[in-house]
Design a binder for these strands. Structure first.
Lengths: 157, 157
DNA sequence: GATGAAATCCGAGTCAC
DNA sequence: GTGACTCGGATTTCATC
């Protein structure tokens, strides 16, 4: 997996866009839609994976189908702003499967988390037992999601 | 695509988990890993798609590869809290391709947005030209992401 | 009603050009 | 980059439990 400073031509971009929308397209379909031969398409797609332009392909599961109907955003402020403090917090967050996103931000919070759980009761449990117990957490602010207007849409390119 | 109140057994869950991690697994591979015949696996997987348990399969593109290196979270407060006001805002946001996530939340903001753009300059342009110009926006609070610790990880089930 | 074995069809992956 | 080839997987059928 490369960092890849190489370039993407029109055809590569088309392949990326198509696979971003329909990750299980067959190579044959893909080739037809981008108007190249199957062999060419195959080689290009392989390169896109090998050089790290495509980092993975994932099925999107309906959250409610697997008992994860509640989405919560949480702002976190740490006690101290030392590198160790941040590293420790991040390590702890990486181990929490309920945390889907975690971003270090500039602004009123140190981190913003996106968390999926079964319901509010579940979140309260998580909050009390794990979130406020995370290393160096001074304060959290919880934003319950009342309506998901957009969730993880395609990259605009 | 069903709302599907049907149940998922152990095998279905295994299939979901595998496809969530590796969306391009062949049916043959999948069948082997869940220890059923290819025919059965195929039928079950098809059902998971048809009944809406799997809402799609998407290739994940490295954001930097397509010139979207900057991630920004934005909290939005609307002028008025009328249904029309919310609907209008949501419609406008749905049309903005840079907005990856948009959630109506309870708390200090009305909405929390996740936005991907090329760089800070691009965001400032977007902010000035489109965000604060969105219908009914009273105030926005910007959180530049300095480090992506976790991004859109798998659902924990 | 769901399963697995077999049979057919078609795409993946590789080759020479 | 294309076209052709071979192999293996996708998909259907069908008998079975």
């Amino acid at each position: 997996m490369e960092v890849s400073s190489a370039t993407l031509d029109r055809i590569d971009l088309k392949i990326l866009r198509l696979l971003q929308s329909e990750g299980r397209l067959t190579n044959a379909e893909l080739a037809q839609r981008v108007s190249v031969s199957a062999a060419t398409c195959h080689r290009r797609t392989q390169r896109l994976f090998e050089e790290g332009f495509i980092t993975g392909v994932r099925a999107e599961i309906a959250p409610t189908a697997v008992g994860l109907g509640a989405l919560v955003m949480v702002g976190v402020v740490l006690d101290r702003s030392t590198p160790e403090s941040f590293a420790e917090f991040e390590a702890a967050v990486l181990a929490m499967k309920e945390v889907l996103d975690c971003n270090l931000v500039a602004g009123d919070f140190d981190y913003l988390l996106k968390i999926r759980v079964r319901d509010m009761a579940d979140f309260n449990k998580l909050h009390g037992a794990k979130l406020i117990a995370l290393p160096g957490v001074r304060q959290t602010r919880t934003f319950f999601v009342m309506k998901e207007v957009k969730d993880n849409t395609r990259l605009p390119f």
